[in-house]
């Protein structure tokens, strides 16, 4: 078992599950959003990890370097970070509106108020 060699992937999987747990188990809407952000950040780690090569340098031509890291995953993840920020911002915006309308951001309170 090459556990240490796959260290980065273990970090990815553990962070992913921490985020996912918060999304599912927490009933507070802000905590859910925090979980969602952690969940997305784990995927960023996965992408950044795959672009790195041992002893690789930035992909700029120079005589000293022969091994280059792949820049594409980082570019992809810049896009995904923007998407993640927009999602969090919109989610928080919705939470603010929920607070205005219901006076609470607990899932159980809101369900109770809707039943009335």
């Amino acid at each position: 078992m090459n556990i240490l060699g796959l260290f980065y992937y273990w970090v990815f999987a553990i962070v992913l599950m921490i985020g996912f747990y918060a999304v599912i188990a927490k009933s507070n809407y802000v905590k859910k959003l925090i979980g969602l952000s952690i969940f997305q950040a784990a995927v960023f780690l996965l992408y950044i990890t795959m672009g790195k090569i041992d002893n690789g340098t930035a992909p700029i031509f120079q005589d000293a370097a022969t091994v280059y890291s792949n820049p594409l995953p980082q570019v992809l993840i810049l896009t995904a970070i923007v998407v993640g920020i927009s999602t969090t911002a919109l989610g928080l915006g919705i939470v603010v509106r929920i607070r205005e309308e219901y006076g609470s951001i607990e899932e159980s309170d809101i369900q109770e108020r809707d039943r009335q």
Partner: peptide
């Protein structure tokens, strides 16, 4: 309708989890 807000929050959470799963697959 204020009930749209919790509904959309649920959609946002589930939709984002779905899209992130897709992103992991692509990765």
């Amino acid at each position: 309708d204020r009930r749209a807000l919790p509904a959309v929050f649920k959609y946002l959470i589930m939709g984002t989890v779905g899209a992130t799963f897709y992103l992991i697959g692509i990765g």
